[in-house]
Simulated assay, not measured.
Amino acid sequence: MKKDMISAERKSKLLKFCKSVGIKFKNIELLEQAFHHRSLTNEIKSAKNNERLEFLGDSVLGMVTASYLYKSLENPEGDLAKIKSQVVSEKTLAPIALSLHINSLLLMGHGEQMSGGQTKPAILADCMEAIIGAYYLDQGYKAAEKYVLSFIIPEVEKTVSNGLKDFKTQLQERFQKYSKQTPRYQLISKTGPDHDQTFEVSVQLGDKTFGPAKGKTKKEAEQLAAQIALQKYDFTSI
């Protein structure tokens, strides 16, 4: 993208973003490209989209995160893989993008914008990776690593403190280990209007039933039922 294609107002916004996240670009056009969703090129043929930068940034993000986990945690490989998959996921990256106001700088085609593209998790996460790719090209690995760690370390700490496995996963792994069977969940009831439903679920381990537990979604009720079973079931008695 040529320099004269970036307006003074747009450049000011990009520089403000850089300052807010603690990064510097020699080639501001690279950063600008990172904010170009592919739908933009459908309307402006001369505009480059951010897909190639996203591809590169995804690899840099993965490398930085894997290296940090290896150096900072003594967990086995399986745990490190689970942590990595959580912290570099769309579910994690999209809220970070919103907190950095990346959505306000995204440029996309009219149709995508009208459908709420600037707040779609997949688009936000992809843009985060594109920015990493652009920064890596502009400033090198060490600078990109510092930027990535600024938001990945808190997510790693959060993931570790919250536990690596949800209650359903823990219950399934423990029950299968002792019995070679899987827990069976049963929806007991579903009450309330469509916009405010309550689900009641129980879980059966062999001939024993635990719950029911209530939740605002079926998934939440299943998690709570699994938590009850984990607390009350004597797995060594199988």
Rank of each mutant, 00 (worst) to 15 (best):
L15T: 05
G192A: 08
K26F: 10
T65D: 05
Y136E: 04
I123K: 00
F55G: 08
I131C: 02
Y233W: 13
L31G: 02
I153P: 03
N50M: 03
G109C: 09
Y70N: 14
Q204S: 11
K11S: 12
N103M: 02
A125V: 02
K91Q: 13
P76K: 13
K84N: 10
L80Q: 10
M1V: 11
M1C: 09
M108K: 02
Y68L: 08
T41A: 13
S99E: 15
E220D: 14
F55I: 07
K11D: 10
A213I: 00
S202H: 05
S179A: 15
L100N: 06
M1I: 11
L93R: 01
D79Y: 10
G192C: 08
I153K: 12
H36S: 04
A47W: 02
K180Y: 11
I228K: 14
L40D: 03
R38H: 08
D234K: 14
G215I: 02
K71D: 15
A125G: 06
L205S: 03
L149C: 10
G192Y: 04
V156T: 05
L171H: 03
P183E: 10
N103A: 06
A225E: 03
V160Y: 06
L69C: 08
A225C: 09
L98S: 06
N75F: 15
Q139H: 06
I102N: 01
Q231R: 15
K84F: 10
E29H: 06
L100R: 10
I83M: 08
Q231H: 13
T92D: 03
L31A: 06
I152P: 01
E157L: 14
S46I: 12
S72L: 05
F17Y: 14
L149V: 09
Q172R: 12
V60R: 01
I28Y: 08
K26T: 12
G109N: 06
G111Y: 08
K218Y: 01
G163P: 09
P193C: 10
K214R: 15
L137H: 08
L40W: 02
D166C: 07
D79N: 14
S89F: 05
S12T: 12
Y185E: 06
L205V: 07
K26S: 15
A94Y: 01
V201M: 06
R52N: 14
I153H: 03
F151I: 05
Q204L: 10
R52S: 14
E145H: 05
L205T: 04
A34Y: 00
A122H: 11
Q113T: 07
V203S: 05
V21M: 07
L40I: 06
E29A: 11
L105C: 09
L80I: 13
I238E: 14
S12P: 01
F35D: 00
A130Q: 00
T198K: 07
E220S: 07
L137S: 09
Q223T: 02
Y135M: 04
K120L: 10
V203R: 01
D79R: 02
L164V: 09
F17H: 11
T198F: 03
S67Q: 15
K19W: 05
V203N: 01
F235Q: 07
G215E: 04
L164E: 08
T182N: 15
V64F: 04
L31N: 03
L137Y: 07
N75Q: 10
